[in-house]
Design a protein around this nucleic acid. Structure first.
Lengths: 253, 253
DNA sequence: CGTTTAATTGAGGAAAGTCAAGTGAAGTGG
DNA sequence: CCACTTCACTTGACTTTCCTCAATTAAACG
């Protein structure tokens, strides 16, 4: 029996984002019509990457844009001091590889097995200039990613480790919901180290934050990659940084 | 004699960004042709805001997009704990107010006197759908802003206060260069508190960072809003976080 | 010129980083 | 299938850094 995703696989590239102007009932609808997806499928090819495989490196010539079908990738920059900063985690229906003057601005690595559509820039370019509707959808997607990155920056600006991690989990949960997956459990495809590089703290601090949330009874992890939020209200308070630590503290101590 | 900017004022909305694919010689060219700007000018109106004046609030209905002509604005989010996080500083030729489902996602306040083009969304919307070239330019601008926000996130991810502030100054300097202004001196239109809210540290820490850079002879400030980089190589090392603190430390101590 | 706001500076404490050791999980090859 | 290697994660002890609170100085504004 084919997975739900298999149909997407067959239908061509897909992008998902909210509309810029119109208030819609649906949360994040599929932006492209079947016809548009079919037209894009003509110029696209399917590519696969193993877990841990590097897709491209920062500064390389950008020959293609990728549209993820299944799996998760990380986009990251390597700082001059050789520490890595993760720019974004990218999931199915995301678009990645939009470049600056023909060169990639991030490196890209698969953190799970990945299948994706590869769209050559030359072909995409001409398609874009001939299809105003598609262009508009790309604009919507970019606005979406811009807000996503602003949210990332917001997480990074927090000072408390617990708050950072809680916000990160909220983010993952929401993305999962948007993809139509079950959210009884949050799935963490990435390592502690990846999380640390995303939220701006050491992997040890990430580990401690998980422990902190667990011992306070706020989350419960089945294994290192699956957890459940058991106390939603204090969880949200910690994420919002509204006096939850003090309340929870009085319970614990 | 009119300032260079006065001509922009007269010519209609202007946006500036690098091209997605083509490597260009110019750093960040004006994307819109005279004709496009004129067509946009038809639907635009000029608006002015005083220093400190709020332009719109997060969550309000988004009736218009703004294209800044002169002055500087800050876009920010107010956290549930009532602390403010600055999302971006916006300068002439920037585009701001692209919304999510018809509502603004940030608040916007002028931090200097500001003049801007106001583009009603309804008119802009129909212009966009009739002009593929304009759409493409908006895509370029959005990619540009996306990278800008990623850079912001990168600054926020740094741990050292000096490094954060140095990177922030690099950013300002580059934006100044792009706008064609002189870069012998870096101009800081925003307060220490604004800087702190942008780079993710307290205003006191910002102040101390400036002092730190000054006492080490790396920067020299004429007044609180104007400074010069006097030791470029160690400045860059601090921004890059490559063993400059140790080297500078041995000099000072 | 006085009042208000912004910025600096200092002292103390909390929080996360670093270093290092130990534990658990996963994958490999016999 | 199990021992072995390897890698990811956890946990602890110590140190550094920045935040918080508070007092002082400097600048901006009417």
């Amino acid at each position: 029996m084919p997975k739900a995703r298999a149909s997407i696989d067959a239908d061509g590239p897909a992008i998902r984002a909210v509309d810029l102007w119109a208030p819609s009932s649906e949360k994040t609808p599929q932006l492209l019509s079947a016809e548009e997806r079919a037209r894009l499928a003509v110029i696209a090819s399917i590519v696969r990457f193993n877990k841990g495989e590097k897709i491209y490196g920062e500064g390389q010539r950008a020959h293609a844009v990728f549209n993820i079908v299944t799996g998760v990738v990380k986009a990251y920059k390597t700082a001059p001091d050789s520490s890595e900063h993760i720019t974004a985690f990218l999931f199915p229906d995301d678009l990645v590889g939009l470049s600056e003057e023909g060169r990639y601005t991030n490196s890209l690595t698969a953190i799970t097995p990945v299948t994706a559509y590869l769209l050559p820039v030359s072909a995409l370019r001409s398609r874009l200039s001939n299809d105003a509707g598609l262009e508009f959808h790309v604009i919507c997607k970019l606005c979406h990613e811009l807000r996503q990155t602003q949210r990332h920056a917001f997480i990074l600006s927090r000072r408390q480790a617990l708050s950072k991690v809680a916000m990160f989990l909220q983010l993952l949960e929401q993305l999962q919901a948007v993809r139509g997956e079950r959210i009884t459990e949050i799935y963490l495809p990435m390592s502690r180290s990846d999380i640390g590089e995303y939220v701006g703290m050491s992997l040890e601090a990430v580990s401690r934050a998980f422990r902190g949330l667990t011992t306070r009874g706020i989350i419960k992890s089945r294994d290192r990659r699956h957890l459940k939020i058991t106390d939603r209200s204090t969880f949200d308070k910690i994420a919002d940084n509204t006096n939850a630590s003090s309340a929870a503290g009085s319970v614990t101590q």
